[in-house]
Design a protein around this nucleic acid. Sequence first.
DNA 1: TCAAAAGTGTTATGATTACACCCATGA
DNA 2: TCATGGGTGTAATCATAACACTTTTGA
Lengths: 233, 233
Amino acid sequence: MEKEESEERICQNPHHESKIEINCVIFCFEEKKLKVLLVKNETSLNGFKWKLPSAGLAGKPMLQTAQEILKKHISSDDFFLDQLKAFGHHSPLQENISIVYYAMVRKENAIEEEDLNSDVIWIEANNATYLESSDRTILDFSLKELKKNICCSAVGFNLLAEKFTLLQVVKLYEEILGMKINKVNFRRKILQRRLVCSLDEKEEGVSYRAAQFYSLNVPKDEVSWNAKFNFIF
Amino acid sequence: MEKEESEERICQNPHHESKIEINCVIFCFEEKKLKVLLVKNETSLNGFKWKLPSAGLAGKPMLQTAQEILKKHISSDDFFLDQLKAFGHHSPLQENISIVYYAMVRKENAIEEEDLNSDVIWIEANNATYLESSDRTILDFSLKELKKNICCSAVGFNLLAEKFTLLQVVKLYEEILGMKINKVNFRRKILQRRLVCSLDEKEEGVSYRAAQFYSLNVPKDEVSWNAKFNFIF
DNA sequence: TCAAAAGTGTTATGATTACACCCATGA
DNA sequence: TCATGGGTGTAATCATAACACTTTTGA
């Protein structure tokens, strides 16, 4: 009786408790490929060795928990992080909830994997086969959201370095949207709308005409609609 | 020790439990105004009489819980409902979480309030002053999201009847975006892109030239990017 | 007839596309 | 010299905005 009551107060309803977990989909762009970070799945019951990084709340705010997941793998504070969606995984007596964040980082800030037995891997996001179905669902949703967001805001630039060439931007958009983009017209569009500033610096040591470096001229931490962005291909 | 362990299994950590609540922001469009449904705040401690409708999970899926909230107030199954975002309300030992859904309904499907002491009201969304701060935050976020979504998808049409005139569409967009729109050019844009089909039916009993009725020609249940939609004003 | 809203025509401007073309660099 | 990618010029086409204008209706 005593025990019953104390559980009631803590859990509201002991037979209908929900577990909450924070998941992170961490993207980077390396070698013209969009990649996503996975960690070893210690508790794998079904042969899936890797999973999206996750953590329980432990009484902390959701965003803080997500930030802590990121800081485990990224050495810099310079990353983009935003909530994606809450997913429910239903079981008969309980609704387990994943609140998923997605992040965009620069690979050079990733904490290096020391050896081949590392606990983390970066896999190609568009070719991530060995994931269990709930992670698969989350990743697919992230990719859709990412496509949508890079067309109407500058968030995609969080995957590039501060200085970048226009071809890097084109390749990034081609990879994420999964389509060929006309380089010449794309660069004109970006330049006309003053989305970027040209820097007094060029590529070095390349075996072709060195490209100009540019920096971004619009906020890249807002997913919200940016009227200058209107990339429909 | 025994007790310790059983609580562990149920609650993960008895001192850091999270309460989860589903909230709904239910929009309609009536008399050229965007309105939102509020219910009586029975447990008001601070003088706020009204709040967004909400419910606990009680072991059910999140979406089902949101649908049940809607069905309390809407007599038809024909509504748009989608998840907006999970909000955290932090207290020292506990992170309370609202998973917020937003809905678009047609006012004619709303269950009628019988009297002035009704438990629900529809208030103007852009003029909703008497809400407590967490509801205020949620509503503001919904309004921003709604603005974004009607510019790149047809979800806004969920606020209109199956048959509508083009002026109704213009007025809807003007109200939600909070700006004047050129009627003539807007209708041409909508017609050129074949977003709507003209019906063999006109307004009746109006004291001006009767307007053509139209129906929507694109899916209105997808928030995802629709390439035909590109409404930047 | 009038007011109110529906709806068409036209023109200037700007954006987008698709080309052909030249430039710079290291191998 | 060649391949590779950087970058410019131009003309046709399409979208958008602003404007004046005509049509339909009930009061």
